[in-house]
Amino acid sequence: MRRSSFFFLYVFFCLLVIGAIVFWSEREGSRFIAKSPDLQEITAVLRLTDISFSHDARYTRHPSQADLFSAFQDYPGSIDHFPSGSVTAPPDFSLLSTRITVRKR
């Protein structure tokens, strides 16, 4: 067997696995979408605003409701007590002028 055949066989095997993955993903994705009305009903009935992803701080349990504007509060993106706080993105401060100018006396 030629050496190139091993390479082609490996690529073919990987493509076969990827094909199976795509097929499985389609199926599982459709299953999730099929059960999503039940999840949406829970959201609507309990009037939930956030996913239950991390429970160590208010701003990681309910990122959309957290009072990020409060002074001296830890907030997503800061170097803080909770590791999951550094997982979430910092607020968009692009509209504010955040340049610090240091002048010589």
Binding site: F53, S54, D56, G85
Partner: peptide
């Protein structure tokens, strides 16, 4: 998972839907 869990005691054991 250790980074995502953070200090949470209750952590959801979810299986993500494979959206690609």
């Amino acid at each position: 998972a250790p980074a995502l869990k953070g200090w949470s005691v209750i952590y959801p054991e979810f299986r993500l839907a494979p959206f690609i």
